[in-house]
Design a protein around this nucleic acid. Structure first.
Length: 878
DNA sequence: ACCTCCCGCCATGCT
DNA sequence: AGCATGGCGGGAGGT
């Protein structure tokens, strides 16, 4: 079902694997070329909302179809009604629609609410623009025009645009104008979001929440402490909420316009996406998402109304994301009952994963390169002005001015006719194919590499004790209990050691540059001043000053990442003492390595054994509490120099490759130099490689990282600023050692081929039910990935995420492949579970999902964590 | 009765 | 003041 859709998206031209041409293609692709023109007429007559029942128009039907495709629910409804389905029809979609639907449509056509749904509206909206617009062409979007054409109030358009903006699929030009970027930046954005999500420890938070729930259900009081700890984190998250993650290429153009708070919807959307990217099963229930987004799990009691409102918003966002085929609605059945949830059906993404080269290339063309980033920074700064603490660099100010001028120009500029754009875009699209092909090839390459790397990493981890700092990924794995793993994170940071650890919340506070090692893309997070202040204060100040460029490896640091990084040697020692504090971060790391792709899986145990784990110690439970502690610790750390940028703005940095090759490798991770990374991590020294600012700017990542990271920061500032290694973040995937690349590939292919079945209903049984504590390791849960794979995301999306896929594949094939790693007892279960199979078909997922979710927790250490629940995920599909 | 979530009031903030 | 944005929650359609 949806799977298909996804594929479509990718366009007509591009996709290779697309299994289902149907829906997606219909909308976007075919539509793209023709549609736009069509649209005009279509939209007008149709009037989405109203579409009078009587209306024979197929378009409506088409839309419905599309929507239904997007949202299972709708689909179901339609199906019931007897709509024809359409996936195939979809392709033809609009054109055909008339034909297909007419009968049903009548019935349906009635302007029922469904027809007015945001999801449908979003489909219509998306149909107007190509997934991969030609950058050269004018891709302006006039909100008024769109609203008119789609016959909806502007308010609705804002809802859509805000979400798209959060994914950098559009960017605001001026008042009523937005620029359409399509999916060129999507992978990059997702990679960034994943990194941020990991930094924020969303995975942990999710686990905590689940655990709590679980406990409540069972009345387990056992880990109350832990719970408490967890909550804090969540609370922190709330803070983090404030921030908005921007990418270098895409930023807010109209800063002034943007000023408004920090658009909760945009931020919510990003966070929501992060949850999917970070969580292993990649299935997120609205309830959990709402809690996390609210930032207070514990608080929920307090505000029911708030919770309800959050849920409403999440539905809004989910509808748009569904239209984008990034998620699909499913139901998770737990002991308590069935809860609405959404499953990620988008491309798998490696945190940081290097954005696909294609993307970058596009970006370069489309986006303004460095300047834009600068501008953004500037804007952000302004917007953030709240914080006096952060001063702007003169350079930034200049940039801002220039930006403003640009804006003015833009605003003044004659509106660009959307339609023309469309036409153009369609035309333009033509060129893409070649690019696409290239990208695809690249992707494959990357995937292979990644997969291999991952495998290696996994092996490494298993075999080797060495810790990787790696990415936050561990979060998923990490249980709250385990804190530990300071070593891991630290490694990268070590040099930086200085950086104070900041919890996610903290990190959020300050705008930080987060370098993803892997992705190579840097992103800036904008925080509210207030938040930033909170974070920055002490540590930052000191840090800022101190940081010599050389010393600092990465800037991200302000955020959790840095923290983790910080863990490095110094940290380790300190942390050890404080342990609890850092535990949060650290704990994960170890797991991460293993997990990366898989996440939580069982490996935990394995991991633990590793040196890292040892280092970590048993802080486990503390994570949550640790946050609080962390703050304190941070204070203590004040001494330590922080890498944070003085300004606090985020500037998109290029990655910090400068670091030794090792570091680079890590970054490249994508490519997969896992082993090296490990070493790097292991050896503080290497990890530390100091880079001069100049170096940083100059540095380009080799190969994969197409986009060289550039530091937007003014030179002066740069000097002070430490560069953070993104490498740390790189995501578990990277970290994971790949066993055999080839095998990984095979797995992939297998997965794609057999495993995936569209429209699958997944029922995850946590297996657990029985077990609260079971130490299982989770099997690799990368179900979501599987789906992605199936979808052929890889090809489509430029970024295939090997790791997960592999995992999936492994799981699928039999756990065997992956065994190496975690292999937990569950394996068998895993196998079944893992199959998420699919995206497309209505298959059911078995326990695996649940396990995964819980599984991480389940791990022996994790016993504390969430007891395994039974999760049944059922797609709406009928 | 509950799940979804549309609709539009009205606050916010720029022009 | 006027307009663009968008937060927010009542309440209705669907099931």
């Amino acid at each position: 079902m949806e799977n298909e859709k996804e594929n479509h998206f990718f366009e007509p031209h591009k996709r290779i694997l697309i299994k289902t041409p149907q829906k997606e293609s219909t909308a976007p692709n075919s539509v793209l070329a023709e549609i736009q023109p069509n649209f005009g007429p279509l939209t007008t007559p149709t009037k989405p909302k109203e579409i009078s029942p009587g209306e024979p128009w197929t378009p409506t039907a088409n839309l419905k179809m599309l929507i239904s495709a997007a949202s299972p629910e709708i689909r179901n409804r339609d199906q019931k009604r007897g709509l024809s389905d359409n996936r195939s029809g979809i392709l033809e979609a609009k054109d055909c629609l008339h034909e297909h639907l007419s009968g049903d449509e009548y019935e349906k056509s009635q302007p029922s609410r469904k027809e007015k749904s945001l999801g449908l509206l979003c489909h219509k909206f998306l149909a107007r623009y190509p997934n991969y617009p030609n950058p050269a062409v004018n891709n302006d979007i006039c909100l008024d025009e769109v609203a008119e054409e789609l016959n909806v109030e502007r308010r609705r358009i804002y809802d859509i645009v805000n979400v798209l903006e959060s994914l950098h699929m559009v960017s605001r030009l001026a008042k009523n104008r937005y620029t359409w970027h399509g999916r060129h930046n999507l992978n990059k954005t997702l990679g960034t979001l994943k990194s941020v999500g990991m930094e924020n420890k969303y995975a942990e938070q999710i686990m905590m929440i689940k655990k709590k729930e679980y406990e409540q259900e069972f009345d387990f009081n056992s880990d109350k402490n832990e719970e408490a700890a967890v909550k804090p984190s969540s609370g922190q998250n709330g803070h983090s909420e404030m921030c908005f993650v921007e990418l270098p290429g895409v930023e807010f153009r109209a800063a002034s316009v943007n000023s408004r708070k920090d658009k909760s919807l945009r931020v919510m959307s990003q966070k929501f996406v992060m949850l999917f990217l970070v969580s292993t099963p990649q299935i997120v229930s609205l309830e959990v998402a709402a809690k996390i987004l609210i930032g207070e799990d514990h608080v929920e009691d307090l505000d029911k109304s708030k919770f309800k409102t959050k849920i409403r918003r999440l539905y809004d966002i989910a509808n748009v994301l569904s239209s984008l085929e990034l998620i699909k609605k499913v139901h998770v059945t737990e002991e308590r009952g069935r809860k609405p949830a959404f499953k990620w059906t988008g491309p798998e993404i490696c945190s940081n994963t290097t954005v696909l080269s294609p993307i970058t290339s596009f970006d370069s063309t489309e986006l303004e390169p460095p300047q834009s980033s600068k501008e953004h920074c500037a804007k952000n700064l302004f917007s953030t002005t709240g914080k006096p603490n952060f001063t702007r660099h003169p350079s930034l100010i200049k940039l801002v001015k220039s930006i403003e001028n640009d804006r003015r120009k833009i605003s003044s500029a004659p509106s660009s006719p959307i339609k023309t754009n469309k036409a153009e875009s369609s035309l333009k699209s033509a060129p893409f194919p070649s690019k696409m092909a290239q990208l695809a090839a690249i992707c494959k390459m990357q995937l292979e590499e990644q997969s291999s790397e991952l495998k290696k990493k996994v092996k490494m981890q298993l075999t080797r004790p060495p810790v990787h700092c790696q990415s936050l990924d561990f979060l998923a794995n990490a249980e709250p209990n385990r804190t530990m793993s300071a070593s891991q994170t630290p490694s990268l940071i070590q040099p930086l050691g200085v950086l104070p650890l900041i919890h996610s919340p903290l990190s959020s506070a300050v705008p930080v540059i987060v370098p993803h090692a892997p992705s190579g893309t840097s992103y800036a997070i904008y925080l509210h001043p207030s938040q930033a202040q909170t974070v920055t204060p002490q540590s930052l100040n000191s840090s800022v000053h101190t940081v010599p460029s050389t010393n600092v490896t990465g800037i991200k640091g302000s955020t959790d990442n840095t923290n983790s990084h910080l863990l490095t040697t110094k940290m380790t020692t300190e942390k050890v003492t404080s342990d609890a504090i850092k535990a949060d971060v650290p704990a994960k790391p170890g797991t991460q390595v293993l997990l990366t792709s898989e996440g939580p899986t069982s490996r935990n145990e394995d991991r633990e054994p590793t040196a890292e784990r040892c280092l970590k110690r048993q802080n486990a439970p503390e994570d949550n509490s640790s946050k609080k502690k962390l703050k304190e610790d941070l204070k203590g750390l004040e001494n330590v120099p922080a890498t944070l940028f003085p300004s606090g703005y985020l500037i998109p940095l290029t990655q910090c490759p400068s670091l030794g090759t090792e570091s680079i490798l890590s970054h490249k991770e994508n490519a997969g130099a896992c082993s090296p990374n490990n070493r790097i991590y292991n050896s503080p020294i290497t990890g530390v490689i100091p880079v001069t600012t100049s170096d940083l700017t100059a540095v380009n990542f080799p190969t994969f990282h197409v986009t060289p990271l550039k530091l937007m920061v003014s030179p002066t500032s740069v000097g002070t600023m430490p560069v953070v290694n993104s490498s740390s973040l790189p995501s578990s995937s990277h970290s994971i050692p790949v066993q055999n690349p080839s095998s990984a590939i095979v797995n992939f292919t297998l997965q794609h081929l057999g495993l995936i079945s569209p429209g699958v209903q997944v029922s995850a049984n946590a297996g657990v039910g029985s077990v609260p504590v079971s130490p299982r390791v989770e099997p690799i849960s990368t179900p979501s990935e599987n789906t992605g794979v199936q979808q052929g995301k890889v090809t489509k999306h430029e970024s295939p995420v090997p790791g997960r896929n592999q995992l999936n594949g492994q799981s699928i094939t039999g756990a065997a492949g992956q065994q190496p790693v975690p292999v937990t007892p569950k394996g068998s279960q895993l196998v079944t579970e893992n199959f998420f199979r699919t995206p497309g078909g209505p298959t059911k997922l078995l326990a695996s999902t649940c396990d995964d979710l819980d599984g991480a927790h389940n791990t022996s250490l994790g016993s504390l964590f969430v007891p395994q629940r039974k999760l049944e995920v059922s797609t709406d599909v009928h």
